[in-house]
Amino acid sequence: MVERKIRVLVAKPGLDGHDRGAKIVARALRDAGMEVIYTGLHQTAEMIVEAAIQEDVDVVGLSLLSGAHMTLFVDVAKLLKKNGLDEVLIIGGGIIPVEDVPKLQKEGIAAVFGPGTPTEKIVEYIIKNVKR
């Protein structure tokens, strides 16, 4: 009776407190049958990566609306890689200018979801792209 469940860490790096999106996504992923670990606000890259290791997650979802994504998303991606968590799927959400998206993808953030993305699109993306 092997019962795999997709485990997702939903984290908010940086200082902005807009957790509406993160919470909606967290709930939607739960309703899609995933186990969602929510870390709360103001997380440093180190805290997020530590949690990702201990919780052995398949996906790390980062949400940030302050515009600091080029620094903070990339911090998390680099640190995950440094810790050997290459197989973890990293996705991001928030107000991300289109021109930043390819730069983020190059750094290992697999996909970026802007405001107004239907939650089912995120669910679909995870199911299709999760690496384990």
Binding site: G14, L15, S66, G67, A68, H69, L72
Partner: peptide, 10 residues
């Protein structure tokens, strides 16, 4: 340190 990446953003 907590200001990292956030300068002048919002």
């Amino acid at each position: 340190p907590m200001s990292r990446g956030e300068f002048g953003k919002c």
